[in-house]
């Protein structure tokens, strides 16, 4: 048994040797940040360390006066003797797995990840380690994603059908991640209008040199007739808002892994649901975990109990840990 390089504490995932936290949910001295979703990064830490593409997200979401240090993927730094580096997690732009190494012991905290390349976030890269911390958002065998191209084709068919009926197509997608993925996937299929929370993030990415197709920012002046034949992308929380309701004829489509199951679609009462997720599906989780060759897997947010039980049955020592990730994902977009 190796010495534990990380501990699960009431503030977050803690590396004692390096004296820093990874994605803490309570204020600490140094917060190593896997990605910019609200359940993984909180306001109030003295300093942040993240991938260089996550910096603009933190500045926008948490305020301009943060102390942020950035790293590119695969570059190693030393914190109190612990070698730390980021590897792409494929979840959203700038998302990183955190690799820690101390006296030959290697631990990887993956944050959120997906294994399918989405064409916009740097592709997930498996990292060999002794201890791996994995999410389990979709850790049930019913969750198996279709290749994204098939989903994009379904969305395009839906948009075309809406146009025939003179309806505006409104897609609900997280502003960070899913929105950019849709913009890229639907580029050329009509004007894409985006909510300001998405437009702001996009501006940051374009400044950072990311190649994003053109979109139009929705402002109070945007004419509703102009939206009619276009595609409108808004954060999930807004699909029930007054603005959407004020559109003459809107059809809403929710893009989320939960849409895989009929009960999920019914529950959100949208006109359409597309199972497009930024999280690994069941085969994705298993292949990622096997590729790490880890001796011990800690399973965080999602179907953690079920998934860790299954890992143990197939001979991978796994343990369920309680974190606060996943809880506020849906609220994130109110920003």
């Amino acid at each position: 048994m190796h010495m534990a390089l990380i501990q699960f504490t009431s503030k977050g995932i803690y590396c004692r040797q390096g004296d820093f936290y990874i994605d803490p949910w309570k204020p600490v001295k140094l917060a190593v940040t896997t990605h910019g979703h609200a359940d993984h990064v909180k306001w109030g830490n003295q300093a942040y360390l993240c991938h260089e593409l996550t910096k603009s997200i933190l500045l926008q979401r948490l305020g301009a006066d943060l102390k942020i240090q950035t790293l590119p993927y695969r570059q190693q730094i030393d914190i109190n003797g612990v070698k730390l580096s980021f590897f792409p997690a494929g979840h959203v732009i700038g998302s990183a797995q955190v690799r820690l190494e101390y006296k030959g012991e290697i631990c990887v905290v993956s944050g959120d990840y997906k294994v399918e390349y989405d064409g916009i976030s740097t592709a997930f890269e498996p990292v060999k380690c002794h201890t791996f911390v994995s999410e389990s958002t979709f850790g049930l065998p019913i969750y198996k994603w279709q290749p994204q191209q098939i989903i994009f084709d379904q969305i395009k068919d839906w948009v075309a059908a809406n146009r025939d009926e003179n309806k505006t197509s409104v897609l609900a997608a997280y502003s960070l991640g899913k929105a950019q993925r849709l913009i890229k996937g639907l580029a050329g299929y009509g004007e894409i209008y985006v909510h300001q929370s998405i437009a702001n993030l996009n501006d940051g990415f374009i400044d950072a040199g990311i190649n994003l197709p053109d979109t139009l920012r929705i402002t109070p002046e945007t004419k509703k007739e102009d939206l009619q034949r276009g595609i409108v992308i808004v954060p999930p929380a807004l699909t029930e808002g007054r603005w959407i309701k004020s559109l003459i004829h809107a059809a809403t489509g929710i893009c989320s892994g939960w849409m895989q199951v009929r009960a999920g679609r019914r529950w959100r009462s949208a006109d359409a649901g597309f199972a497009l997720s930024d999280h690994a599906d069941w085969p994705g989780l298993l292949s990622a975990i096997k590729a790490t060759t880890a001796e011990k897997v800690f399973v965080t947010h999602g179907y953690s109990a079920t998934f860790s039980k299954y890992l143990n049955e197939i001979g991978i020592a796994a343990e369920e840990v309680k974190t606060q990730y996943g809880e506020e994902e849906e609220k994130e977009e109110v920003l």
Partner: peptide, 25 residues
Amino acid sequence: SGIPDWLFSESYHNVGDLSETISLI
């Protein structure tokens, strides 16, 4: 599908419909 019985039950519990669970699994 090569999964254990209990995992099928767990999945069914989440889907809430046997036909659908089978179709997904």
